[in-house]
């Protein structure tokens, strides 16, 4: 049926496209875990994204797609200040607090540098009807966030006691295996260009941990606490872009 419709179309069936787009990603689950280390990661509940590297090859109506998208949020700009304030709030009653963190050096915010990266690859099914194009995908990929270290020197008020606090994650780059079904509807405005709207769903299990260690500089006695980040995350992206038909 579909083939017969395609055969009547004035346009040749699409064989190869590139598909840049921009949009917004929303996390359905709540963002914060409430841990002191929350701002050491680049996990954000709402981000804008851009897909520059995105291409699909078709054989008849089936195809394979690969894309990379960068995700960013202005809230991620002042992660060091937020982390520093949180640590100071926690300990400043008894201690003079001096905070440092990897995000102090890596937070040079640029709107086109992704704090969260997504890579997806998988099969696509296409329906072309006159100028209208429908794409159904079932992709698998990676969602990647960054986590930074943090540390603080806690000098006790009125004494010679100094504590060293540190927060380290079990791995720096966190890649989460992601299931990414998505749908695109496009309208061919000219022969080579298709305007399209994208709807993506992302499902991945975020799983990592931070270890807080507080050590006395004199006795070297220490206390450790584990902050476990574990959540099945659901995200939705809505975007707009265009397809450039190469073939």
């Amino acid at each position: 049926m579909i083939l017969s419709i395609s055969a009547q179309d004035p346009y040749k069936p699409i064989k190869w496209v590139i598909r840049p787009s921009v949009g917004e990603t929303f996390t359905i689950n709540k963002k914060n875990f409430g841990f002191i280390t929350d701002n050491l990661t680049t996990y954000a509940s709402q981000t804008y994204y851009w897909e520059v590297l995105s291409t699909t090859l078709f054989y008849r109506n089936w195809g394979i797609e690969f894309f990379v998208s960068g995700n960013q949020n202005k809230q991620l700009k002042n992660r060091f200040d937020k982390f520093s304030n949180r640590v100071t709030d926690e300990y400043s009653d008894r201690y003079y607090v001096t905070v440092s963190s990897g995000c102090e050096f890596s937070e040079n915010y640029t709107p086109f540098a992704g704090s969260i990266d997504k890579f997806s690859l998988g099969p696509v099914y296409k329906i072309e009807k006159n100028r209208t194009i429908f794409l159904f995908r079932s992709l698998l990929g990676i969602t990647s966030i960054t986590s930074d270290w943090g540390s603080a020197v806690l000098k006790e008020k009125g004494t010679n006691t100094i504590l060293d606090a540190s927060w380290t994650s079990n791995k720096v780059g966190k890649d989460f295996f992601t299931f990414n079904p998505s749908f695109t509807i496009g309208y061919r405005i000219i022969r080579k260009i298709v305007l399209n709207f994208d709807f993506n769903y992302w499902l991945y299990n975020m799983e990592f941990s931070y270890t807080e260690t507080i050590k006395n500089r004199d006795t070297r006695a220490g206390v450790s606490t584990n902050y476990h980040y574990s959540r099945l995350l659901n995200e939705i992206s809505i975007g707009v872009g265009f397809m450039y038909i190469i073939k």
Binding site: Y96, K155, K157, G158, T159, N160, T161
Partner: peptide, 21 residues
């Protein structure tokens, strides 16, 4: 006198015992 954030030379020579240096 190390009772503050950084040690300072005590001008009064009266120092908390836990913060002496």
């Amino acid at each position: 006198d190390n009772s503050g954030q950084n040690p300072i030379i005590s001008e009064t020579n009266i120092v908390p015992s836990k913060a002496y240096g």
